[in-house]
Design a protein around this nucleic acid. Structure first.
Length: 558
RNA sequence: GCCCCGGUAGGGUAGUGGACUAUCCUUUGGGCUUGCGGAGCCUAGGACCCGGGUUCAAAUCCCGGCCGGGGCACCA
């Protein structure tokens, strides 16, 4: 709804500028002083040799709001031109949400997107650093789907790396412990690393595994795939606990078996940037500001991670309109090289979201050293803490219901806490913070939703309402906020900034809580009660949808 | 050494050129409640790393420092 208002204001301002004989873009901004504001007059001041105030006044003289459906007023405040929404904008917003319900916020886009996220090496469980990738990726995929895109999420399985060869090596020598498969694999991997540190002679055995695997040795292939499957099943179940599911798992090795790696090497050989260095095929990216060459084929003829990554991205580019990758800060350089190479080869380049690292108070995490906090551990602890809270407040509920609520609250708390921080900020994990539910996070939003549900449950009034009655400031502010839900989806779809959804959900909840305090619903006279019930229902819908975009459940009681 | 990303109240965090009061949580102080479920609301206190510059206007852009994180393999 807000998008229509914005379009109207844009056209209105454009026409006014034209009528005033001024050439300028009709730029708009959000403002505390208006629903939309323009500060074009500043930019025109030096050109027109007049004060911004004068110019604003002149433009305003040519504004014709009567041609538009949603503009109530356009006023001049010093150099600013302020636009305000009218009553039918508010009424239409309420009606749109009531009618569309869960579809409110759909933008009707239809392009196909492949979004890759998580893609951690299958040599151990997800740790608390990895899930920043998963949570940002999953949130973005949900937002993009909401916007209408046809999204396929992919997990790129790195099964050809040294780490996996180490796992295979470890599985030959050590027994798997009786624990969740990904955790057991990590134990074996850590032991293998220790053994090789002690006796470097064992390294040759690992190298041998890698060479045989790339050559397609049947027995080794079985071992590699078995080890990867084992670990991956554990990772998948952890992701599932957080409401995250991938549509497709793409194995790195498939690009070798299928011959696409060979094809890409052939294409690179044709490039004018390629050369042979010491028997290896490389691309010289010097003129693009990269010091190091991009190696595509080793002197022994085998491929590298970077080669297979090219093949993978070529496939993705062919299969969709937008390719999106979520990578950790350690991939900054390599991914910008990848983009450059794809450009050179004439392949559509991916949009890359980089997130900075999550570290522990004592330093960064490492699977190899066994220095990490697993996501399963975090989920267990947070859910336990959530259960205590629920039990304290709602001893009247059955055990099953309390467990269910605790799970929703626990997962929500974790997901929200991670997604709310913008990706370029590095953070430090600490237990005290993670288990603190007093903070304004997901439970704050979920609770507001439960309140909406509670009010609606207590009333048996028929729909049918007069939205003109919703005139209190807290009511109007709440409606305006809800009108911006599609705008947020539009911005996030374009800029890929997942944290904006978290900010929006929090602000919406704050406004609902103010309404809740200022405007009684069930105790007022009939017509007003109906109107407010409808507003509560709309709020319920939008909060629920906003939570859904973050993969957080919205319990009806808690 | 070079490259990339950050630096906002005691702690955490939003805002990345525009309006005299820079957001939200936490912490500290005061108030509201047996409610339409207080996991809430109101209120007071407290911050843009430092130094230059660009601009009518800088937390936001540019240059130089300082601090923190990441990266610079025929590893993945």
């Amino acid at each position: 709804m807000f998008l229509s208002f914005r379009d109207e204001v844009e056209s209105c301002l454009k026409n006014a500028l034209k009528a005033a004989g001024i050439e300028a873009d009709a730029e708009l901004e959000e403002s505390d002083h208006a629903d939309l504001a323009s500060s074009v007059s500043f930019k025109l001041a030096s050109k027109l040799k007049k004060s911004p105030k004068e110019i604003a006044g002149e433009i305003a003289k040519h504004i014709r709001i009567s041609d538009y459906k949603f503009i109530a007023d356009a006023t001049v405040s010093g150099p600013y031109i302020n636009f305000f929404v009218n009553r039918s904008f508010l009424n239409d917003t309420i009606e749109a949400i009531s009618e569309k319900k869960c579809d409110y916020g759909q933008l009707g886009y239809s392009d196909r997107i492949i979004l890759e996220h998580t893609s951690t090496n299958p040599n151990g469980p997800l740790h608390v650093g990895h899930i920043r990738n998963s949570i940002i990726g999953d949130t973005l995929s949900r937002v993009l789907r909401k916007a209408g895109y046809d999204v396929e999420t992919q997990y790129y399985v790195n099964d050809m790396g040294r780490q996996i060869a180490m796992v295979v090596f470890g599985l030959e020598r050590y027994d798997l412990l009786e624990k969740k498969s990904d955790h057991a694999v990590a134990e074996v991997y850590i032991s293998a690393n220790r053994a090789i540190e002690k006796d470097h002679g064992l390294k040759a055995e690992v190298d041998g595994f890698m060479q045989k695997y790339e050559a397609g040795d049947k027995k080794i292939k079985e071992k590699f795939m078995g080890a990867v499957d084992l670990c991956l099943s554990g990772i998948r179940s952890t992701l599932e606990r957080m409401n995250i599911k991938h549509d497709r798992f793409v194995w790195e090795s498939d690009f070798v078996w299928s011959g696409t790696v060979r094809d890409i090497i052939g294409i690179v050989e044709q490039s004018r940037y390629s050369e042979i260095q010491g028997g290896a095929l490389v691309l010289d990216l010097n003129e693009f500001g990269f010091e190091k060459e991009y190696v595509v084929k080793r002197s022994d003829g085998t491929s590298l991670y970077s080669t297979r990554d090219l093949a993978y991205h070529k496939m993705k580019a062919k299969d969709c309109d937008r390719v999106i990758d979520i990578f950790g800060a350690d991939h900054k350089l390599i991914s910008s090289q990848l983009v450059k190479v794809l450009e050179i080869l004439g392949v559509k380049t991916p949009e890359i979201v980089i997130f900075e690292f999550v570290s522990l108070p004592e330093g960064s995490m490492s699977t190899r050293k066994g220095k990490f906090i697993t996501t399963d551990e975090l989920l267990d602890e947070v859910e336990r803490a959530a259960y205590e809270e629920v039990d304290k407040r709602r001893s009247d509920l059955t055990e099953d219901i309390k467990r269910d609520i605790a799970r929703s609250v626990g997962v929500g708390a974790i997901r929200y806490d991670i997604v709310r921080v913008s990706a370029e900020k590095s953070t430090t994990f600490d237990w005290k913070n993670a288990l603190d539910f007093e903070k304004q996070g997901a439970p704050f939003i979920q609770y507001a939703h439960a309140r909406c549900c509670s009010i609606l449950r207590k009333s048996d009034d028929e729909p049918g309402f007069n939205p003109d009655l919703l005139i209190e400031k807290s009511e109007v502010d709440l409606i305006k906020k809800m009108s911006k839900f599609p705008l947020v989806i539009e911005i996030v779809s374009k800029d890929l900034k997942a944290h904006l959804i978290a900010t929006y959900a929090r602000e919406l909840t704050e406004l609902f809580n103010q309404f809740y305090r200022d405007a009684p619903v069930l105790s007022v006279e009939d017509e007003l009660k109906k109107a407010r019930l409808c507003l509560v229902d709309c709020t319920r819908i939008v909060i629920c949808e906003a939570l859904e975009l973050m993969g957080i459940e919205a319990p009806e009681i808690m």
